[in-house]
Design a binder for these strands. Structure first.
Length: 553
RNA sequence: GGGCGGGUAGCUCAGCUGGAUAGAGUGUUGGCCUCCGAAGCCAAAGGUCGCGGGUUCGAAUCCCGCCUCGCCUACCA
């Protein structure tokens, strides 16, 4: 907010110097206005003098002095300016500017932090997309939380967001699922059965088989086809998955079945179209996608000699459908094990005439789960995985969400179950939520003491908010909208988490040092106005990434 | 062999388009509730930012090489 004004002032001084012939326009857009790290370096600093010195071969401190002198004339905005270090121009903002933010933020209310930078662009966020072969695992959990947070951030910044879950309930994996279920079914009936070598060994299969016995008795004992077993398993597992997602507060606009791509002829159409462009050929009984013509190091099979497509073909067709459905931007959240598909899909999309730059793939690394210091290996096939449900049972929804959002997608995420459960009282999520609850308590207290908090902030003498901690808090609040915007456009929810943690730290520190409801009524009133805007930002920030906003804890 | 992502305090991790003296949590040590919520605060301690070069006023950040860990590299998804 204020930073933009400072940037404008610097730009004006820069342009003025250009017209006066002090320097050329070559340095335009290369300098920045940033927040200095250390105290005493002003509220903002610009490196414009150093950039210009490099371009013009002049002394940076001399140029800095010119800027310092001219910026100082913006005396409504700027209190004073200093030249420091190798040529930084440190800018000290007039406190009234910070104090003036309070009514602005209150006026924006729940809308503070939201923006329209998205310009109404239609964005599809595809995430989870787990085939119904078992309960959601920890890795899916990370993806679900990450995708949901990204979708929420995009929605908050003026994008039209559509959430989609892509799945496939056909194919080999599902057949194995059906066979596994049949084996358990026969087993439970005390009959001879052979469990598939690569079958799904989880207890949930036994439960599904048991439900089948309850519904149909042993009527399926001699059933040849695997279909009834597979269907029963799929139904039960999908119900389980969607229950887990609902539990985490995650909802999809659509579940897209891969099969529909075949039924509607999109698979064949893509092959034909690529073939028409000379990008598809037959060899060894298989159909190949000539990705070498698109700069890749080898061609890829898209239809096996068995006649079955490889995963690449439907993936390409699916992305083409997304474009045809009118989305401007496709965001895919994938686990890093799917990285191999990305170049092929992008190549396919491009070959079909769509701009691959409109596809952004967020690859998240795995979650390494530990329990009592020992690593737990996860595999859906084997029985020893830990499900999202189990995690939710142990830790709770908010901490799970928070932990999964705390790391950037690129990083592997270590989740120590024992630690998370044992120390749930010290979870960082509470640190932030406690800040909000504490602010609410202050407002309740104020009401009890008969101090009105619902009157316009303009009635408070905001100039009394002059303590360094108060000005710093206001400064932090002012960056909230830009932070949200950056998190959304970079698809990086973790940065908002760090922002909230930082702000909570500032608040707790302030709270311990300064009394809000003190003996001076005017001061209390001013501080309560600050409390209100802080509460608003915590509430908006927490809600924006799907965390609950507790008024008491 | 090739591609992608990690390697920053004992541990888990931030560090935005290069910026000034390297950050947080946790753990360790020592303080703070007759006072608005102690799920909190304050202080101390803890570092060759994997290694070596290069680019420049300036590098954890950009480039090259190497080491190391994870994922991928399939006519599995």
């Amino acid at each position: 907010m204020i930073r933009a004004q400072v940037k404008k002032a610097v730009d004006r001084c820069f342009a003025q110097g250009v017209t006066e012939g002090l320097w050329s326009a070559a340095g335009a857009d290369r300098y920045t206005v940033e927040l200095p790290k250390h105290q005493g370096q002003g509220d903002f600093a610009t490196n414009v003098a150093m950039i210009l010195a490099g371009v013009e071969r002049k002394k940076p401190r001399e140029i800095a002095a010119i800027f310092a002198e001219r910026l100082a004339t913006f005396n409504e905005l700027i209190d004073r300016v200093e030249v420091a270090g190798p040529g930084f121009v440190n800018i000290f903002i007039n406190p009234a500017q910070w104090q003036g933010l309070v009514p602005q933020i209150l006026a924006a209310g729940a809308g503070f932090g939201r923006s329209e930078v998205g310009g109404g662009r239609k964005v599809m966020v595809e995430f989870v997309s787990a085939n119904p072969t078992g309960p959601l695992s920890i890795g899916h959990g990370r993806q679900a939380i990450l995708g949901d947070a990204i979708a929420r951030l995009l929605a908050a910044t003026g994008h039209q967001v559509y959430r989609e879950y892509y799945y496939n309930n056909a194919g080999r994996q599902m057949r194995v699922l059906g066979e596994s279920t049949r084996a358990r079914y026969l087993e439970l009936l005390g009959l001879v059965s052979t469990f598939p070598e690569d079958g799904y060994q989880g207890q949930y299969i036994v439960d599904i088989a048991r439900s089948l016995i309850e519904e149909k008795g042993d009527s399926l004992r001699a059933h040849e086809a695997v279909a009834p077993f597979q269907e029963q398993a799929e139904r039960a597992i999908f119900a389980d998955i969607s229950a887990t997602l609902t539990r985490m507060g995650i909802h999809f606009d659509n579940y897209y079945n891969e099969r529909s791509l075949y039924e509607q002829g999109h698979i064949e159409a893509v092959v034909a179209e690529l073939r028409g462009k000379g990008l598809v050929y037959d060899q060894d009984g298989a159909v190949w996608f000539r990705t070498t013509a698109l700069g890749h190091d080898q061609d890829r099979v898209i239809i096996k000699s068995s006649g079955e497509p490889t995963y690449r073909l439907p993936d390409i067709a699916y992305h083409r459908e997304k474009f045809r459905r009118g989305f401007d931007w496709l965001v895919d959240i994938f686990g890093s094990d799917h990285i191999a598909t990305v170049p092929d899909v992008l190549a396919g999309v491009e070959a079909l005439g769509y701009d691959p730059a409109r596809v952004t793939v967020v690859l998240h690394q795995f979650v390494t789960l530990t329990r009592d210091g020992k690593q737990v290996k996860m595999s859906t096939r084997k029985a020893n995985f830990v499900t999202v449900d189990e995690l939710l049972d142990e830790v709770g929804v908010d901490p799970v969400r928070f932990f999964f959002m705390m790391r950037k997608a690129d990083s592997q995420l270590e989740f120590d179950l024992a630690l998370a459960t044992r120390q749930s009282q010290e979870n960082p999520v509470y640190y932030v939520q406690y800040a909000h609850a504490r602010l609410c308590a202050l407002l309740r207290q104020a009401a009890e003491r008969g101090i009105a908090t619902d009157e316009p902030a303009s009635l408070a003498d905001l100039a009394l908010l002059a303590a360094p901690e108060e000005l710093k808090l206001l400064q932090s609040l002012s960056t909230f909208p830009a932070t949200v915007e950056a998190c959304a456009l970079e698809l990086a929810p973790h940065r908002l988490i760090f922002y909230l943690l930082e702000l909570a730290g500032q608040l707790h520190s302030y709270y311990n040092r300064h009394k809000v409801l003190g003996d001076d009524p005017a001061l209390s009133r001013a501080r309560l106005a600050l409390v209100q805007v802080l509460r608003l930002v915590f509430a908006n920030g927490l809600a924006m990434v799907g965390l609950t906003v507790p008024e008491r804890m």
